[in-house]
Design a protein around this nucleic acid. Structure first.
Lengths: 177, 177
DNA sequence: TTAAAGTTTCAAAAAAAAATGAAAGTTTAT
DNA sequence: ATAAACTTTCATTTTTTTTTGAAACTTTAA
């Protein structure tokens, strides 16, 4: 294989990797996860080896502070880990690569941060003592239904957590029949 | 019941309603749906009767342009409807209040707008002809797995769409056993 | 213990997203 | 056909979110 071909193939790989990282970043922001956080995660997901902060900064063209804060956030979510290499002072990072595990951790985190607090408020407002007007009756009725619905959805996420292995495949089978 | 009490009760209702609208708005933005869009939706969800644009602007303290654009977006999502009242020139708006139907429409829309395009890219990048290095093998492997996973999740959303009635309750039952 | 190597923090800047509002565009009753 | 009543659009402004980068902090090898 010629040197020229080598170069070409490497560039294709880099392009594919970059396309994936960009896409994952865009998808993340549409779902309320910041772009850089999603991009770092994407990068680590497809990296064979643990990556240093320096390399993350270089590949994504971001500042040290940005890299540091988003790595911290990803570690808080439990989907990125620090790794230490013998004889290396620097820290390296790896992503949780098991997709079932990833889904479990993401649902756990979103439930804790967003759904649980919303449920709390729903419970509060649906407890309004209606004065019997149609408007108030409707309000209490709607928010109660919403509370039940969101609670059920949240419980579903909890259950997913318990399954662990391949819950999605099992679920698809169940849902189809 | 005294006038004072009347006032008090009305204020509690207003407060509860406002709290709900604010919370729904905040939850929306955390999930990548703009605050006003989520707030308008929340307002219509708990409103007994169809609401005019004027009233929406008034209640949420937003401009006409903002109200108009977000109502349009909600109608594009298929979760808010226009209503015409006899002898009224103005247009009124109502939300889809059936929560199963609401979930169906939201999943349909997000799948179409966000997941389907991401799947396309995942398919493309996972089709990379690996040159056999560990790095490239890992890349192809990871992105292929991700493609399968996201596809399965997306199919699940499709299936939910077909169920229509009370899919969530049924699903929770299934998942628990 | 120290200084080199690295990481984190956070105030300020930049970028991105959302909201405004006035002008343009529609619709409808007469 | 017209004008009143209402809605939409979009360039500009505002707000919110994200990013930067330099200073402070931490760790570790010698």
């Amino acid at each position: 294989m010629s040197y020229q071909n080598e170069i070409t193939i490497k560039m294709e790989f880099k392009e594919a990797k970059n396309k994936f990282v960009q896409t994952w970043g865009a998808l993340g922001s549409q779902w309320g996860i910041n772009k850089t956080m999603a991009q770092i995660h994407a990068l680590l997901m497809v990296s064979h080896e643990a990556v240093s902060m320096e390399d993350i900064m270089e590949e994504l063209q971001i500042s040290r502070g940005n890299a540091s804060m988003n790595l911290r956030a990803l570690m808080d979510w439990g989907i990125v880990y620090k790794e230490y290499k013998a004889g290396e002072r620097r820290e390296f990072f790896t992503a949780e690569k098991d997709l079932d595990e990833l889904a479990v951790k993401i649902s756990r985190e979103r439930s804790k941060r967003e759904i649980k607090p919303a449920l709390k408020v729903l419970k509060e407002v649906s407890a309004l003592e209606s004065d019997g007007t149609a408007a108030e009756k409707h309000f209490v009725d709607q928010t109660s239904k919403l509370y039940d619905f969101v609670l059920k959805a949240d419980n579903m996420l909890d259950k997913i957590t318990e399954y662990k292995d391949n819950w999605l495949a099992k679920l698809v089978v169940k849902i189809m029949k």
